[in-house]
Amino acid sequence: MNAHVPHQTLVTPEKPRALASGQFKVTARDVDVYYGEKQAIKKLSIDIPDRAVSAFIGPSGCGKSTFLRCINRMNDTIPTCKVTGLIDVDKHDIYDPKIDVVQLRAKVGMVFQKPNPFPKSIFENVAYGPRIHGLAAGKTELDEIVEKSLRKAGLWEEVKDRLAQPGTGLSGGQQQRLCIARAIAVNPEVILMDEPCSALDPIATARIEELIDELRQNYCIVIVTHSMQQAARVSQLTAFFHLGTLVEYGDTDEMFTAPQEKRTQDYITGRFG
């Protein structure tokens, strides 16, 4: 449909409302991602601000999840995946060989498309991260971290009496909030969410969206979503991906009311995708 690929330069929202601190948490420059021979992302550059929700939208296969997984190097687990270019988190190149990927993932947490609690107790699910990172000095401190994380994830009141029960016994929405609590427990600065509500019913989705809105106060959140309504509801900034390129990135309200690019408009109005 689009023969020409628009030149990709630094894509920075012109009027980021949420950019209170004026500091970008995640910056990417000229990122190319290949799966074997296939190029999944082409020359992508983006600046993502702290304490705001950035939504990645776009049709399936456009590379938005791929890019998301580059930010905490989850793509390392795919042997054929190759990433070039520069991705900084807090001005540190995360693909620097000196960077410890384990430390990076503690700092850049992730919530997955399908709720994937460990087949262990609710407590163990949340306590696992702090434990392996040595964040808690003792049992009481660990208890505190677990309670704090569950409270932040809005799950504490529902599960406080059954922390020893399996996390897999919770409902889908509760499981996803448990996964968010698990991600929060290791004190991340960035939380990546890969379609966190796609497996949930509307009520559970609404709860997660509320939660995301609350978490925005403290974290840099990047969320991939297929639902444009969700992007409009929860995000301050929206990035539109298409065929491995970042087409447009900007203030969510503007994006949905007056997109700069025709392709964005076509997608938003439902003409393709």
């Binding site: 989850m74 687990t77 399908k114």
Partner: peptide, 27 residues
């Protein structure tokens, strides 16, 4: 063992070995 378990463990900053020995192998 579903890969989501490995991903979950890696996602909270477990090393590959921790993910395998603490989550995948018991399952």
């Amino acid at each position: 063992v579903p890969p989501s378990i490995t991903e979950a463990a890696l996602g909270v900053g477990a090393s590959k070995q921790q993910a395998v020995f603490q989550h995948v192998l018991p399952l």
